[in-house]
Deep mutational scan, measured.
Amino acid sequence: MATGGRRGAAAAPLLVAVAALLLGAAGHLYPGEVCPGMDIRNNLTRLHELENCSVIEGHLQILLMFKTRPEDFRDLSFPKLIMITDYLLLFRVYGLESLKDLFPNLTVIRGSRLFFNYALVIFEMVHLKELGLYNLMNITRGSVRIEKNNELCYLATIDWSRILDSVEDNYIVLNKDDNEECGDICPGTAKGKTNCPATVINGQFVERCWTHSHCQKVCPTICKSHGCTAEGLCCHSECLGNCSQPDDPTKCVACRNFYLDGRCVETCPPPYYHFQDWRCVNFSFCQDLHHKCKNSRRQGCHQYVIHNNKCIPECPSGYTMNSSNLLCTPCLGPCPKVCHLLEGEKTIDSVTSAQELRGCTVINGSLIINIRGGNNLAAELEANLGLIEEISGYLKIRRSYALVSLSFFRKLRLIRGETLEIGNYSFYALDNQNLRQLWDWSKHNLTITQGKLFFHYNPKLCLSEIHKMEEVSGTKGRQERNDIALKTNGDQASCENELLKFSYIRTSFDKI
């Protein structure tokens, strides 16, 4: 039985969820670079991206490699990797027998973001014989899940209580170790020597080791999670996991709180800001991140802002960003909400898709409305799209047979046209069989910064309504002859009103 693990408890099935942008060198404390989270699957090609990484700022997932063999891993080693800020997950990587050479110096898994409450997941690794993470000293947050690894031993010899604050939620089941077939031998045991430290858990006094050649490092209890030197002297209180010299914040392997210019500090002093819960960055760093993602459509890219001495992905609820200094300031009234469309555009074809934009005031991208039916549609669209004030790209209304009016965009005031449909149009209306009105132009103002209007096959939309939009939106004169079809717009509506004058002759039985 794995020490510190839980057996036999019912657990939810383990679901495996399925960018080499360097964020800056980590400095003297770390020998390499800070790398983003990685999802490495199918083959070993991307694994080489770990070569210079000291910190993975995010998670590391290595999974679904069915053609790899043990010899493929023999020359692979990433000794610079010290810390993973989120979680480490391995799933069905064939041929991998140990992690001792792959990650010989991995010391800390912070667990800032977890995989279903777990910071370390080893699942269905069919050839893994031992973990071998002999320098792993601290899992700051989260638990361990090690399950269905039929060859995995050296679990009962690990004292997880020396690595985690609590072992109650560890789930370590259905491994070879369960069948008591392992016969784990710690260093020196074969020669009758006791080389590794022994600890007591559940009444068992057991030597602690990761492999037959690597003991588990056990520091004096007084050192807590700070770690200790090879001689057993406690590291500085700002260290986490390990250090090369005692009581020196510049000799830590990793930091308990924050890293700044080669030393570990309790908090980031001005003019620095907390970033990702582990390091200090200056304003320029946060500003660069903001600008890199301002026009990016890459998933996970955030326009970072500053709030409460932190550089964070977005302002919290009730705050909006001051564009001059990136500071989050309290909103006066309802907060603006910028919604970034991942692929640059979004099609609204149902109430469900409209709900995804609920509360958005600025759309960074283009909207395509293609709704053919739905219950209580006008009210639903207004509830979900009615706060949109600005669209950076274009607005396209296409084959939306259920629409009679666009009044559900009740606050839309600006279409920038930074991206144009077919390279020309910022407003595009095609084949809307029941569209009769755009907006009530006596109450609604709309500016279209650039781009043209396109109207074709809107049989109940009168040309007068379209011409009014040209005047109000500032697009009059931009359109070419064929942009607004004269014969297919309003051709099934009563669009022309003329005053009919009647004269009559009164007659009676005795007068003409």
Results as ranks from 00 to 15, higher is better:
His28Ile: 02
Gly32Lys: 04
Gly32Val: 09
Met38Val: 05
Ile40Val: 15
Ile40Gly: 01
Asn43Asp: 09
His48Phe: 11
His48Ser: 09
Ser54Arg: 07
Glu57Arg: 07
Gly58Leu: 00
Leu60Asn: 00
Gln61Asn: 02
Gln61Glu: 11
Ile62Pro: 00
Leu63Cys: 02
Leu64Val: 05
Leu64Asp: 15
Met65His: 13
Met65Arg: 03
Thr68Val: 06
Arg69Val: 12
Arg74Lys: 09
Asp75Ile: 11
Phe78Thr: 01
Phe78Ile: 15
Lys80Ile: 06
Met83Ile: 15
Ile84Ser: 00
Thr85Asn: 05
Tyr87Phe: 04
Ser98Asn: 06
Leu99Asp: 00
Leu99Lys: 00
Lys100Arg: 07
Asp101Asn: 09
Phe103Ala: 00
Phe103Val: 03
Asn105Ala: 05
Asn105Thr: 04
Asn105Phe: 05
Leu106Pro: 01
Leu106Ser: 00
Arg110Val: 07
Gly111Phe: 03
Ser112Met: 12
Leu114Ser: 03
Asn117Lys: 07
Ala119Gly: 10
Val121Cys: 13
Val121Leu: 04
Val121Arg: 01
Ile122Trp: 00
Phe123Asn: 09
Glu124Trp: 03
Met125Val: 05
Lys129Gly: 05
Glu130Gly: 04
Leu131Met: 13
Leu131Gln: 01
Leu131Ile: 12
Gly132Tyr: 01
Tyr134Glu: 06
Met137Arg: 10
Met137His: 06
Asn138Val: 02
Asn138Tyr: 12
Ile139Ala: 02
Thr140Gln: 09
Thr140Ser: 08
Arg141Phe: 09
Gly142Arg: 01
Ser143Glu: 07
Lys148Pro: 01
Asn150Pro: 12
Leu155His: 15
Ala156Phe: 09
Ala156Trp: 03
Ala156Ile: 05
Thr157Phe: 04
Ile158Asp: 02
Arg162Gln: 14
Asp165Lys: 02
Asp165Arg: 09
Asn170Ser: 07
Val173Tyr: 02
Leu174Trp: 04
Asn175Asp: 06
Asp177Gly: 14
Asp177Thr: 02
Asp178Arg: 08
Asp178Trp: 14
Asn179Gln: 11
Glu180Ala: 06
Glu181His: 15
Cys182Glu: 05
Gly183Ile: 03
Asp184Ile: 06
Pro187Gln: 03
Thr189Trp: 06
Lys191Phe: 15
Cys196Asp: 00
Pro197Gly: 02
Thr199Asp: 13
Ile201Val: 11
Gly203Met: 14
Val206Ala: 08
Cys209Ser: 02
Cys209Pro: 02
Cys209Thr: 02
Cys209Tyr: 01
Cys209Gln: 01
Thr211Asn: 07
Thr211Arg: 04
His214Ile: 11
Lys217His: 02
Pro220Val: 05
Thr221Ala: 12
Lys224Asp: 14
Ser225Trp: 14
His226Thr: 13
His226Asn: 11
His226Ile: 09
Cys228Pro: 02
Leu233Met: 08
Leu233Gln: 11
Cys234Leu: 01
His236Lys: 02
His236Glu: 14
Leu240Lys: 04
Gly241Tyr: 10
Asn242Glu: 11
Cys243Pro: 00
Cys243Asp: 01
Pro246Ser: 04
Asp247Pro: 02
Asp248His: 08
Pro249Met: 02
Val253Ala: 14
Cys255Gln: 00
Arg256Gly: 02
Asn257Lys: 12
Asn257Glu: 03
Phe258Leu: 10
Phe258Gly: 03
Arg263Pro: 02
Thr267Arg: 04
Cys268Ile: 00
Pro271Gly: 15
Tyr272Leu: 10
Gln276Asp: 15
Asp277Tyr: 08
Asp277Ser: 10
Trp278Arg: 03
Trp278Thr: 08
Cys280Arg: 00
Val281Trp: 00
Cys286Met: 02
Gln287Leu: 07
Asp288Leu: 09
Leu289Lys: 15
His290Leu: 09
His291Arg: 06
His291Met: 12
Lys294Met: 13
Asn295Ile: 01
Arg297Lys: 07
Arg297Pro: 10
Arg298Gly: 06
Cys301Gln: 04
His302Cys: 05
Gln303Leu: 07
Tyr304Gly: 12
Tyr304Pro: 09
Val305Leu: 08
His307Tyr: 07
His307Gln: 12
His307Asp: 15
Asn309Gly: 12
Asn309Tyr: 06
Glu314Ala: 12
Glu314Phe: 01
Ser317Thr: 11
Gly318Thr: 03
Gly318Ala: 07
Ser323Thr: 14
Ser323Glu: 12
Ser324His: 12
Asn325Gln: 10
Leu327Asn: 08
Cys328Trp: 01
Cys328Leu: 02
Pro330Leu: 03
Pro330Arg: 15
Cys331Glu: 02
Leu332Ile: 09
Leu332Phe: 12
Pro334Arg: 15
Pro334Asp: 04
Pro334Lys: 15
Cys335Thr: 10
Cys335Leu: 02
Pro336Arg: 05
